[in-house]
Every structure is written in C-alpha cells, then in structure tokens.
Amino acid sequence: MKAFEYASPRTEAEIVDLLSAEPGKTEILAGGTDLVGLMKKMIVTPDRVVNIMDVPTLRSIDELPDGSVSIGAAVTLDDVLAHPYIDIYPAIKQAIRGISSMQLQAQGTLGGEVCQRPRCWFYRNGDGLLSPDVAEGANEFHAILGNSGPAKFVNSSRIAPALIALDAQLRVVGPEEDEQFVPVAAFFRSPHREGQREHVLEPNQFVSHILLPPIEGRTCATYEVRHGEGPDYPLAAAAAALQFDGFGIVRDANVVLGQVAPMPWISQEAADVLRGRKVDEALAETAGQAAVSRATPLSQNEFKVQLAKVAVKRAILLAAGYETGGF
C-alpha cells in the first residue's frame, strides 16, 4: 500500500469535508474487504482514506415514516441479514447468503458491496478497467450484454440487482449540505474512459444510506449461478420482483441481471414477457430467453448467455413461489 493519511470521522458532514473533489485522491473505507486488497496491489492509491465505520448514523437500520426501510451504508451484511425489517425482502437475503463467507458477511458493508470495484482480472492485475486486451483475451467471465463500448467488465455487486428490482434508492451526500436520492437503477454507468468511475458519484459525494421502499405485496428473489461454494462471484445472476393481481396474473415486474454487463442489467424485455401473464416454467423460460436476446458474447463467454437465461428463469420461478428445478 502506498502511504496515505487516515481519518475516522464521526458525522456525515465530517466525511464530506474529508473527501477531495479530485478523482482518486480520497477513498471511502468501510469493511475494507475490497479496498484494502486493491490498495495492497496498488490498483487504488489514495492520498487519504476516510473510514466511515465510526459514523453512527451510517450504522443503523430504520423504518422511515413512509414505510421505507433505510439501511446505513456502513451496516455490515450479517446485520442486514439478521434484521427483521429485511425479512420481507428475500431477494436481498438470498443475495447476501450467496456471499458464502462469514468473514465477508461480518466485515463487508451494504454500501461497500454496492460500490465495490469490478472483479475483472485485467483491472486487478493493473491493466486498467478498460483494457483493450479484454475483447480477444481471457474474457470467460466478462460481459455478454452492454459490452459494445470500451467497458467489458461486469459489475460485481451481488445485491444491486435485487435493490434495483425492488426500486431501492441511495441517499447520496455531498458538499454544501447536498443530499440527493438516486434510484439504484440510475446509480451505475458504464465508463467510457480510464479513470471514470462505474457510478455517477462525484469524488466528494458518498452513499450514506440504501432505501428500500415498502414491499407493497410484491414478491422477490435473487438467483445466482455459482460454480461452487465460497465467496467467489457467481457466473451469472438475476433478481426479480413481481407484483401479482388477485388472480395470480403478473401486474408488474422488474427483472435485473447481475454479473453479465458493466452495470446491473435491467431487462425490460423479460419484464414485458411477464406482464399480464401467469407465471409457469414455460413463461419463466421465455422471459429468460428475452433477457438475453440482445446478448453479444465475447470470444470466450458464449456459455454465459445460457447461464444468464437460466438465472432469470430461476429468479422468476423463485419469486413466484416455485422450485427452480436445479441446484
């Protein structure tokens, strides 16, 4: 790790004051499970690290007057998992359980999970986030959707698809009392040049809270295709949130894929298939197919198209209360 200075503020305002407006100069440190490794490998080299774990307001889970649940960005994943408020959002719990490591769950935070850097080995080995070598290189685990630009990596967050499917928002805090509420769906972006972040935050803004709107009768699920046990990232994943009418017909649906594109991938096509229909295996399969209809696999990752399709199908089946038929 490069030498840096360390600050451990106690309030949100102090955090903002400690952040630099210049990219790369300061980093937010929460659980450290991603950042510390990146700093050790000199991929991330800030001048100052701002530890947000001692800010009490970022460490609680609360119900807001409108029935939303607010989760502080520095709440650890195991605390999210154990909290009764989250019981009604199984998609979130399934995603956290997928991170099958007690250490990562105890140490990692929800904010950190959403803001983690891509687990792309070109990036992690120092070749940059947008290495031109990816297209014809070792891209087995790279993007199959949204990969026409320079970004071929996949967004690594395992919880973001569920958050998006549930219409969650992020409370973003910045200088001069700037407070914004950003839908998670609008938080991520695909960078076009090296140095650009994978989200819309300014360097001196940070995510303070994750806001889950009331469940309002929706059902939801996350399904990950995982090669094996452990914290390793899934090969493909999907989250679905479904709103049924009184007759088992899908009134509305959100389907979001993970690990397949530089951003969590919102599939309008899959949602369109579901709306107005009754969920069964065939419909879920059709929705899965629709979700990958525009896939453009790279030289080594054609297989991920099938996995993404299955992930969508199984997430929908789970959300509708069915068995997946697979592992």
Partner: peptide, 16 residues
C-alpha cells in the same frame, strides 16, 4: 488461466 495474447497468468490470486 493465461491470457492468450499476453501470456499473463490472470487468476494468480486466491479470489480467482
């Protein structure tokens, strides 16, 4: 796993 072009051993960390 090596990168076919650069020969880099791309997954030489336990996470990969």
């Amino acid at each position: 796993i090596t990168d076919p072009k650069s020969g880099a051993f791309v997954n030489a960390e336990l996470a990969d």
